[in-house]
Structure formats: C-alpha cells, structure tokens
Design a protein around this nucleic acid. Sequence first.
DNA 1: ATGAAAGCGCTAACAT
DNA 2: ATGTTAGCGCTTTCAT
Lengths: 336, 336
Amino acid sequence: MADVTLRDVARASGCSVATVSRVLAGTRPVGAETARRVREAAGALGYRPNHAARALRSRSTGTVGLVLPQITNPFYPALVRELTHALHADGRAVLLADCDDDPVAEAERIGDLLSRQVDALLVIPAHEDHSREAVASAAARVPLVLMDRGCGPGIADSVAVDNAAGMALVLDHLAAAGRRRVCFLGAAGTASTATERRTAYAAGAGAIDPGAPGRVALGDFSVEWGRAAVDEVWDARPDAVVCANDLIAIGALQRLQQLGADVPDEVAVTGFDDIPMAALSAPGVTTVRQPVAELAAEAARLLDQRLSGDEDGPQRAIRLAPELVVRESSGAVDAR
Amino acid sequence: MADVTLRDVARASGCSVATVSRVLAGTRPVGAETARRVREAAGALGYRPNHAARALRSRSTGTVGLVLPQITNPFYPALVRELTHALHADGRAVLLADCDDDPVAEAERIGDLLSRQVDALLVIPAHEDHSREAVASAAARVPLVLMDRGCGPGIADSVAVDNAAGMALVLDHLAAAGRRRVCFLGAAGTASTATERRTAYAAGAGAIDPGAPGRVALGDFSVEWGRAAVDEVWDARPDAVVCANDLIAIGALQRLQQLGADVPDEVAVTGFDDIPMAALSAPGVTTVRQPVAELAAEAARLLDQRLSGDEDGPQRAIRLAPELVVRESSGAVDAR
DNA sequence: ATGAAAGCGCTAACAT
DNA sequence: ATGTTAGCGCTTTCAT
C-alpha cells in the first residue's frame, strides 16, 4: 500500500520529480522518450497523485460543493445524478451537503465547503430570502451557480427551467383539449419556482376563461396540500386543475378520485417537473418535464468557464425550455 | 479575501504557529490566557483552516466517499440524507459518486476517491460479484463499510436491514389476516437483497400454505417487472402477492387493478423498503420499513470506530430489524 | 528539455 | 506550556 509518490516515479524512471510532474500534468513539453519512461514507471508502480498535496500547491482541489435543500425532494435525485456525472466527466469530485430546508444549516455547510477549498459551488438555495446572505458571500469567494430556484436578483450565475414557458405549454394543451374552466393549485411564498409558475398561470389562463386567473389556491409543494387544495376549488366545478408541481397534482388526483370525480373525463389534472411518481400514478399525470441532463450540463459548462479565466464576464441567467409530457390525466374532452 | 493563515494568527496573538495550531485543534493543553488571545485573534482575522494543508500533513482529510449504484433508485435519497447528516455531525464531509449501476464506473470512482485521500468509504455495491475486486482492494487501503447490499462474504464491515426478519413480518401479517394462497414476485440474480428476501419467503411461506413456496416469479426490482409478473402468477388465483420491493408491488398493484381484481378484498399486495411512493399509491402499499436513520447512524459509528484506532477488530456485520407498515393494500380478509 | 530548489499551510517531533 | 524546525507531495520558478 505504501503510497507511491512522484519521487518514487522519478527514481524509477531516472529523472527529476519536476520532469515527472510535467509529464503527468502535461504542463510543458517533455522529450518523447523521457515521457514514455516516466509513464511506464508510473504505471508499473501504480502511481496515484496525492490530491491534497496538489491542492495545497496549486490552490485548486478539483472539487465542487453541491448544496441542496433536501435530497428527498423527488425532483432532486435525477438532477444530482446528472450533475455528478457531468462534473466527474470534467475530472472533478462532488462534495454533497443536504440542508434539511434550513437556511442556517445551509450557511454552515457552505462555510464548511469553502474551508475545504472547493473550487466552486453549486447551490439550490433553501430559501428565497434567508439564503441570500450566505450565498452572496460565498459567491464573492468562488464561482457559484444557482440552480432550480433563485434567491434574489443579481446574486450569481443561474441555471433553471423556463417556468413561464412550461406553464404556457400546459395551458395551450388544456385549451386545445377543450377545457374551459381552469383553476390553479400553487404554492404561496416567494420561491422563484412558486412565483414564476403562478405568475405564468395568471398571465396565460385568461385566454381560456376570464375567470380562470382568479381561481387559485395557494399552499406549499406537497401531496398533502394537493389533497386539501381540491376542497378549496371544487365548488367552482373546474374541468381542469393545473398544479404547480407533480406532488400537488398527485394529491389533487387522489382527492378528486375520492370525491368520485372522473379524471380525466370530468376534470383534467396537470403537474410540473416530471418526477418518477408522475408516470406511476393511475392515471399517469400530464406534466412538464424539466430537461435535467441539459440543466446539469449547462451548470457544469458555466462553472468550467468561470474556473478557466472568465471570472468577470457578465452574470449569466440561463433558462432552458421544458417539454410537455401528455399522460392520461389530461385526456382530451373531445375524446370522451 | 486574502486568506488568513496560522502565521497571521500567530503574529497577531504574539505566539508561535505551533501554539495556535494546538489551540485550534485542541491537541494539547495550552495556557488559558494564551488560548483566549489566540481565539480572539483568529476570530478577528476571520481565520479558516486550510484543509488541504492539514490533510497533507496529518494524512487525514475528514472526508468520506459515498459510492452508490444509482441515486435515482427511490430508496437511496433517504439513506443519503441520513448518512450525510450523521457524517456532518461528526465533522466529516461527503464526496458523492453515482455509478449508474456499472461496476466499471464504480471501480473508477472508488479509485478517484482514494487518490483524493478519503479517510473512509461507504459503498453500496453495484454488483454482487463484479464489484468485489474493487471493493476488496479499497477496503485494504481505508476503512470501508458496505451498506444495503453485500458483495461476497468477508469483504468488509457491513450494515443492512435484516431482510429475513422483514419477510417474516409480512408473512405473519398475511397469515393473521386470513390469506391462504400466497405468491412471491421477486428478483432473480445474486444481489443479497434479492436472495435474502426470496430465501426468507421460501422458508416462511410454507407455514401458510404448502404450495406457496413454489408460487414464485423472478425478474428484477422494477415497476415494469411487477406489472409483467402478475400475469405469470395470476392463473393460480393467489389471495396475496408478496413483492420483494415496493417498485414491484406498485407495478403489481397497477396490473391487478387493470385486470379488475379488487385490492385488497380479493388479493393483498405487499412491498419492501417503504419508499415514498408506497404511501402515495391508491391503495397505499403495506410494506416493510427499513430503519434508515438507524442504518446511517450505525454506519457512521462503525467508521468512527475504525478511524479511531480499532482497525483490526473483528469484521462486523450489523443487521437491523425493520418494521411492518400496514396500509390499505393488505386489508384483512375478515374485515370485508 | 531537464534539474534544483523553494515553498503552499499545516502538524508533530523535538527541544526548552 | 510554548517555541523551533522539519517536512507532507506536489507545482513552479529559475537555472542550465
């Protein structure tokens, strides 16, 4: 096990540590024959660079911190998967921190990651306001990309889905399917996903039905709220229930079925995000699929760019178009 | 920004770097007054220790690697959450690696984590056989704890749920509820979760019904297989379908409903793991809840023990008892 | 193209 | 109880 160091490789290949370092890092031209000998020796000895030493010297750990509100939120595992793959492909490692939706824990985790010399930070902020201070001060130290949610304007680069476009996709689909009494089950609060989605609903629903923008119930992003919310709008006898995410939609679906409403014939239900459960409920939930792999790739690209010099380019806010996934929960009225 | 080093703190507090190091790390007794001055100076200057330097010198990074087959497997997010919390509570950071169910990728990720000087490794092996070599050689370098699944005997410490006990809980429950024609939808292959659960079924089901141990269909741990598997056992008209995990159970439930079977009156369905979806399907799936927080705590404790000296204690295989969660999918026959 | 040597910031002997 | 000093393994001038 005795760790093999550059010195060992240097000795074995008959040249200096500096040369070995240059060969392995490819920082400077090295004689072809020497390079071959070095590589051979390194391979034979099973040399593995010591990242701690490299980090100390070069001030770069090849590590990025990923800070999440709650890994158990069913939308995040897929995002984490794509992010880790994209970053590993660039030779980086990912330090994971789960904050349990608590901005105080989040600030602590961010501080810890910074003291561990992460090269950059990927943050899904726990709170629109309470996360701002920690995020802003971290962004002053290392490149930082905000994902999924915002935490105030002008804080850092960001990558997210275009929520307004997604909501427009849903409304167009419902209108085309002949739905005429639409309502919205959303989330209160100032989280950007909550506000953007409900604003987009309010802006677009009027085209279907003048009363629609007013038929709104606001709670949180949970199944429980979806169930409860149905009772708040059911008196209005909607023929479509637009939900701000899939969890709300699943709850709404359950409550509607309990009330004896026929989904989709009597009332359509739509979600947002396309979490795995959306495909598995019966009926399957029509939803807006976030382009998760592309979001991850954009975030990785942005970090790469910031880490390789372009630290002072203008702040970037990248918004990616989502895709409508039509399932049984929104069968066309005409098709009854 | 200018990083504050130990030297700066030493200068500001009028003592040597060694003393400062001792105060901050608490390795050796230091005079109360000196300690106070040092802490004051450190606070005033905003000193943050450089983990890279510390790691280089002390050969310990305070970091553990967490290697998973697939973070999108719905059972893992909760486990990851508890593991990160437990490890953070011990002052460790977590490097996350997702292997996409590929033992080759897994070996690469493990190698990378080792070269990053992780103090220890937590591994959920991707494959019972193909993961063995990489895991064994890693276990020779650092403390390593296997979680959830095994990869051959005698490889490393391990922490997992007691699958046999869980299956016994299910069978007892079904017997008590008056079920008499039981069948099993399991997973083929040599993964320990697959073999332990199907062995336990075979061992326990005979007590309900002599034919039960033979009514077995084997596929993989997926919803799709659950749907297909029902068709393989339906001719036998079982009154209970025991599934090796919740995904299979959800698929089975869907197919049974499609076939017009009444769940639970005509046939009961049970799962294993208690993933979030199990509670959200209609009817909710009766299942075996893994004690996730306790599994994580045991793993963290085991690592701690190995890292603080007890490297040569006997290998430990910790099995934790699960809990039965009764939901609507297994309503008692008597209660019709 | 290659080597010698100076540290990166910290901890751990070794002195005192 | 505190200070001095020698590196940990690597990258990077500065020579040659």
